[in-house]
Design a protein around this nucleic acid. Structure first.
Lengths: 248, 248
DNA sequence: CGAGTACTTGACTGTGGTCAAAGCCAGTGG
DNA sequence: CCACTGGCTTTGACCACAGTCAAGTACTCG
């Protein structure tokens, strides 16, 4: 595979995600490609946007794993979202200007910075594309709501299982899940920060899930062993991810 | 006060909220007023939108208290958001079409139904107004993130205190907070469903907060007793509510 | 090969859940 | 006007899930 073809695939992951939901015109496709220019590479564990800063750009994740998190004064940290290849990590900063959370890489990442100025132009010239982008931020909020449900009402095992189910579904649609497994560049501590548990307890839960033959998470890879029982334990129903086509 | 003036005030609460953030032109104001026509009244405790249904309208809350919630199969319920006068409860259904959660009144409510068809017209004709509405859904997501932080990392007292702080700030900007207090049409059970605790424990926490002289919640009314200590306990900083003016 | 990070495990603790019963209050009907 | 009802709140006794603390193991990377 040439570098050029490789680059195209990376840029196209967002287009594929959008195209799977509603039809994108050639013009819209071109407009999106045109604004996703400024390419950057970041190492793992780098905070790339800090809460409260003024932002001029939104971050389109081309490859790698990114999280958004909030800190408590006493040192506690809650990861509020995970992002995979093709996600518009902080599209909401276009209207919010300054963010209420930090953005950090969890693995080495490649991104495109998209100027808010260019997004504004899209809202002036491409109403349908604007609605599609708006849709993306609304799906993001829907994931927040499902996480609220996990954090508020599911027990430890169901929380961990649910997260592993969600990430499986998300990796699957971008073609990065293989043989019932997928790569997940998280430490157990970071996983704990997603699900509101301690690292120690996450470790115990993972052992239990593994011994019960539901799922394993080792060496940064998740392997699904029994999808029906896993989704049943987690109460996972993927409607909230909005993967079905519709007219926007 | 005449009925007509009263009606105007109700419609204008959304306009005031938007106008406090960024300047609304006369045309934009008129466009918003024009689409908020279909007026409805609902009794308390009525589920008005169910998860998964196809929606043709979004709900602008004119007066009353509304919640959005998700159910677990085993009967558990998590309230993911509360809405006060002037909130666009489910503006996100405009792009999502079907919702991932239910919408329910907590008190008697008055609403305007806004047709998605009309919202679409706005996205075609009023880019700046479109960005303002997009902004509203993004602020909604920011509140979800703060709730994720509460549910995942704050202890019971801080969770309850934080919710009471947030609602105070929100009632204040719509002019419904008076003498350091505000009306909150919630039962302790419903409050528990917001903060991921049991009703019994919420009751204990409320007693503690009251005895410590921080805040009381009795007879559907919250009375702030010591705002500095309450916000300190809660770790409340209102930046995530995006009440400051900015250019969108 | 050594240092540092991540993972694993065990013993013990504590916050918040469960279960149960009683109290309170507003609304309803006799 | 009062008794009854049902929902909400309050309290106590007990329990359990997940947290804390601590020690040890296994990998990775220099």
């Amino acid at each position: 595979m040439t570098d050029v073809a490789d680059e195209e695939i990376k840029v196209d992951r967002l287009l594929m995600r959008l195209g799977a939901v509603d039809r994108l015109s050639a013009e819209e496709t071109a407009a999106l490609r045109a604004i996703a220019r400024d390419r950057r590479h970041y190492p793992a564990d780098k905070t790339i946007i800090r809460a409260g800063e003024d932002t001029q750009f939104s971050t389109l994740l081309l490859s790698g794993l990114v999280c958004r998190y909030k800190d408590l004064r006493d040192g506690g940290r809650q990861i509020s979202a995970l992002h995979v290849d093709g996600d518009f990590v902080d599209l909401h900063s276009f209207t919010l200007k300054r963010l209420d959370h930090n953005v950090m890489t969890l693995s080495a990442c490649e991104v495109s910075l998209v100027a808010h100025r260019d997004l504004k132009d899209i809202t002036e010239a491409h109403p349908h594309l604007t609605r599609m982008l708006w849709f993306l931020t609304n799906v993001d909020a829907a994931r927040h709501r499902e996480w609220e449900l996990s954090l508020g009402r599911r027990d430890a095992a169901a929380r961990v299982a649910h997260l592993l189910c969600e990430m499986h579904a998300r990796f699957e649609i971008i073609g990065l899940a293989q043989e019932g497994g997928y790569p997940l560049e998280l430490t157990q501590t970071e996983l704990a920060e997603c699900v509101g548990l301690t690292p120690v307890h996450v470790n115990r839960v993972l052992r239990q899930l593994r011994e019960d033959g539901l799922v394993s998470f080792q060496h940064k890879r998740v392997q699904i062993r029994d999808w029906p029982r896993l989704t049943a334990l987690a109460g996972f129903r993927p409607a909230y991810l909005y993967l079905e086509p519709q007219q926007i």
